[in-house]
Design a protein around this nucleic acid. Structure first.
Lengths: 207, 207, 207, 207
DNA sequence: GATGAATGAGCCTTCATTCAT
DNA sequence: GATGAATGAAGGCTCATTCAT
C-alpha cells in the first residue's frame, strides 16, 4: 500500500496546486481532498497542517524551477540566446510561481520553513542566477538586475489576474512577459535612465 | 440624520478599505463594522450585499483615478513630460489599485457590475487613454500599447508581494514600476521586436 | 432583547449544568445548545470559550454555596445543631459540587481563574469555615478538620458514581454522607486515632 | 508467535492503564497502540471493541483485588488487626481502583459485562466480604456495613481530585481514607445514630 | 435608522474503525 | 499476525445574514 499512499499524495498535491492556481485563494481542504478523489482524513494524514501542504507544493515547484533552468542553460550560451532566454522565462511563468509562492507563504517568514525547503530554494535561486548571468553576458539583461528582484518580478505577474482584468484582456500575460523582458534589456543610453542606483532621488510616492 | 448616515457610510468604506489593504485578505464583516464604530446591522443597511460594498469601494477608487489623471495631464504636454509621466504612474500605483481591486472583484465579470460603476470605469479608462496618448507622443511609450493592457499591467505589477518576497526585497515595487516603464518605452529598432502583432507564432508557453 | 438574551444565558447554564452533572463528562456543545433550545451560535456568543462556560457554572454554584451556608447558620448555634449540621451537608451535597468543580477545572490552576470568581470562592469558603467552626463548637466535628479538606471531601463523593457502582447500590450517596459525618465526629478516645498530626508515620502506601 | 502475541497484549493493557491513570481522560486508541509499541491494527486484533479492552483492564484489577485480600487475611485475625485493616485499605486504594475503574465503565450496567468478568467480580467481592467480617469481629467496622457499600465508598473516596482541589490539598486522599475508616467504626452509642435503618425518614436532600 | 442577539451553514480537525498489503 | 493507510462521522468554531427591539 506504499504505492497507493504515494499516488494519493501526488493526487493531493496536484489537486491543491490546481485549486490554488485557479482560485488564488485558499480552497477548502474538503474540496482539495474531493478533487484528489480521497477522503478528508487522507489529506490530513499526508499533510497534518496547512503548512505541511504548502511545503509539499513549494518543494515540487522548486524542483521544477531547477529542472527548467538546467534544461535551457546550454542554449543560452549559443547563437540563439535571445530565443532561449524567452523560452526559459515562458517556462518559468508557466509554472504559475505567482499563485503558489507568494500567496501561500503569506505571513510566514523564511526562517519558519524547514531547512530542506530552504536548501531547495537556494538551489533554485542559484540556477536562476547562472541563467541570469548568461543572459547578461548575451546582452539581454542589464547588469544591475539582481536574481532576487528578477524572480520576484516573475512571481509578481505570473499570478492569476482577476476576471475583471483577465477576461477583458486575452493575451495579457504574454504581453506582460514581453514588456518585462524589454524592461530588463539594456537601453540605448547605457541603462542609466532605468538604473535603480539612486532610487532615493525619486519623488516620494504618495501614500 | 442624513448627515449621520453619510458619515457612517464613509466610515464603513474607510474601514473596509483599510482592512482589505492591511490584511490582504477579506476581513469579517463584523470587524469592518467594529472598526467603523457602528453595529453590524448598520453595515447591512448601507451595503445590503457584499457586492454593494465592493461597488462602493470601486467607486471611490475610480474617482481618484480620474482625479489623478486630470491633475497631471497638462504637465505631460510640457517640456518635463518624462518626469510628469513617472509621477502619474507613481500616483496611480500609490492608490493601491493593485492590492485592493483584484482581491475585491475576484471572479466577477465586467457585465455583473452596475452601469453607474461601468460609467465611472469608462471615464477613468478614458482619462488614462488621454494620458497614454500624450506619453506616446512624447516618445515615452510605444505606439502599440493599448489602454486596457497598460492599466492591467499597472495592477499586475503593483500588487503586493507577501512576506517571503516582500521582506527579502525592499524597494521591489519601485523597481518593478521602473522596469515596467522601461519595457513600455520605444526600442531602438522601432519597437518591432516587442510587438505582439503575431503572438500566435510564439512557442506555446505551457510546460 | 436584553431580556431574551438573559433568558438564553440562563437556559444554557442550566442545560450545561444538567448535562455535566448527569454525564460527568464534557458533553458536546451542540447538545448543550440543543438542550437549552438555542442555536450553537448563541452558545458561543454567551460563552466564547469552554472556560467561559465553566466560569459561568462555577459562579452559579458558588453563589448557591454561600446562600446555603447563610440560610442554615443560625440553627447551628441552637439546640438542634446536629440536625442542622446534617441538613447543611445534605444541601451542599445536593448541589452536585462534585461533578462541577473538580471535573470542570481539570488541569486549570487556581491562578487562571478570573479574580471575580476567586472572590466568590473565597466568600464561599469563608461561609463554610464559619459553619465548620459552629459545628466544632457543637461537638459535631473534630477540631483539626480544615475547611479545605472538608469541602474537598464533600466534592469527592458528591460526584456521580458510574452506573456499575451506582445502580447496584441505591441509597449509596446518603450512606456515604452519613459515614462522612460520622468520620468527622470527635471520637471517644479524643480523636487521637484519626488525627493526621503525624501522617508521615504511616506506612507508605504501595504505588 | 504465541509468545509475541501475549507480550503485545500485556503491553497494550499496560499502556492503556497507564494512559488512563495519567491523563484521567480516555486517550486516543492510536496513542495506546503507540505507547505499547505496536500498530493500531494490533490493538484491534487483541481487543476488537473498546469493551474488550475494558474487560481486559477490569480483569487485571479484580485479580489484584483478590490477591491483596488474601495476602492480608491472616493478619486481620491476629492481635494487630487494626494495623492490618489499615494496610489492606491502603493497598486497595493504591490500586487506583477509584481513578481507573469508574472512568472505564462509564454508564455500563453490570449485566453488560461478560460472565467471566462477573465471576471474577464475585470472587473479589467475596474476598472483601471475608475481610469485612474479620474487621467487624475485631470491632473496626460497624456490623451494618455491607460489602457493596464498603467497596463503593472506597472507590468514591479514592477517586482523584483534579488540580483545583488536589494541588491545594496535598495529603487529601490519605485524610479522606482516614475519615472513611473512622466513619465506619462503631460509635460509642452502639452505632444507632448512624444507622441507615430508616433513611426514608430523613429530610429530602433535594432543594 | 441603529443595534446587536440569534441562527445555521460550512469549514477545520480528530479519531474510531476497516482493510489491503 | 502485524502494520499503517484510508475513511467518514462527529464535534469545535467562525461568520454571513436576519430580525426583534
Amino acid at each position: 500500500m506504499r504505492a497507493d499512499a504515494r499516488a494519493n499524495r501526488e493526487a493531493l498535491l496536484a489537486a491543491a496546486r490546481q485549486l490554488y492556481a485557479a482560485r488564488g485563494t485558499s480552497a477548502p481542504f474538503s474540496q482539495i481532498a474531493a478533487e484528489a478523489g480521497v477522503g478528508i482524513g487522507t489529506l490530513y494524514r499526508h499533510f497534518p497542517t496547512p503548512d505541511d501542504l504548502i511545503v509539499g507544493l513549494l518543494t515540487d515547484v522548486l524542483e521544477q524551477v531547477t529542472a527548467i533552468c538546467r534544461r535551457h542553460r546550454e542554449r543560452l550560451s549559443g547563437a540563439d540566446a535571445a530565443a532561449a532566454w524567452r523560452d526559459v522565462v515562458d517556462d518559468l511563468v508557466a509554472l504559475e510561481l505567482g499563485p503558489l509562492v507568494p500567496q501561500l507563504v503569506a505571513d510566514r517568514a523564511l526562517a519558519d520553513l524547514p531547512s530542506d525547503l530552504l536548501d531547495l530554494r537556494a538551489e533554485g535561486l542559484g540556477e536562476i542566477e547562472r541563467l541570469l548571468d548568461l543572459a547578461k553576458r548575451a546582452g539581454l539583461v542589464r547588469p544591475d538586475v539582481t536574481t532576487l528582484f528578477f524572480q520576484a518580478g516573475l512571481a509578481a505577474f505570473s499570478r492569476p489576474l482577476p476576471a475583471l482584468l483577465g477576461d477583458a484582456a486575452p493575451g495579457l500575460r504574454a504581453w506582460l512577459v514581453e514588456v518585462y523582458l524589454a524592461g530588463l534589456r539594456p537601453t540605448a543610453d547605457d541603462g542609466a535612465a532605468v538604473s535603480l542606483s539612486s532610487p532615493a532621488a525619486r519623488r516620494s510616492p504618495r501614500r
